[in-house]
């Protein structure tokens, strides 16, 4: 009888351990995902400043600037579907990298302290976004391993956990980040 109880307790402990570790892994994924979101918001905050700074110098890029402002307004409003948001993120990244190229034609702007500061901030945000995506991918990999490997896969089956998708991150490309899969949770 006593052996039976010991075995039962051990079994329960193992089950609890598996359960908790899966929950923790899932929460880590959620946390990492939220940090991607925080970094993206930081990027939105930079846009008005950037537009304001370059506006007075840039003569031929008016439409690009209006587009960026509109995109930001849409993104911040928040009542959009995930797919739309991914699309907007892509457009913002592309728009700003286009802007940075166009700056080459305006030496005064390129040399202005304000712009240099903003450019630095932009690079920083882009790298932070990239870092948060890598952190998300790492968390997802750990979670997926938990879902797919024995014995935690049995627990995951019961909890109805499925593997999650990774972000695709191009090797060294920072300027043109593929936000595909970003919000397809």
């Amino acid at each position: 009888m006593i052996y039976f109880i010991i075995a039962l307790v051990v079994l329960l402990l193992i089950i609890a351990g598996l359960y908790n570790s899966l929950i923790k892994k899932k929460n880590d994924v959620g946390k990492a995902f939220a940090s991607v979101d925080v970094m993206l918001k930081k990027r939105y905050d930079l846009i008005p400043n950037l537009v304001e700074t370059v506006k007075t110098y840039m003569k031929h890029e008016k439409s690009l600037l209006t587009e960026l402002t509109d995109l930001r307004t849409k993104a911040v409003a928040g009542d959009i579907s995930d797919d739309e948001r991914v699309d907007i993120e892509n457009k913002i990244a592309k728009g700003v990298s286009g802007l940075m190229v166009a700056v080459e034609n305006y030496p005064d702007l390129k040399a202005s302290q304000n712009f240099i500061q903003l450019q630095g901030a932009w690079n920083e945000v882009e790298e932070q976004i990239s870092a948060s995506r890598r952190a998300y991918n790492a968390a997802v990999t750990i979670f997926n391993n938990g879902v797919e490997t024995f014995p935690s896969n049995m627990m995951a089956g019961m909890m109805n956990y499925k593997t999650k998708m990774l972000f695709e991150i191009p090797d060294s490309e920072r300027k043109n980040i593929h936000a595909a899969d970003l919000f397809n949770k």
Binding site: A131, S132, A139
Partner: peptide
């Protein structure tokens, strides 16, 4: 902090207070 570069992971192990910032510092 588990990083994605297998060669790097073989040589080093990384600890940090923040998963995202550690990766911000340790870019590929």
């Amino acid at each position: 902090i588990r990083l994605e570069d297998p060669e790097f992971e073989k040589e080093f192990c990384v600890y940090g207070d923040d998963q995202v910032e550690a990766r911000y510092i340790l870019s590929p």
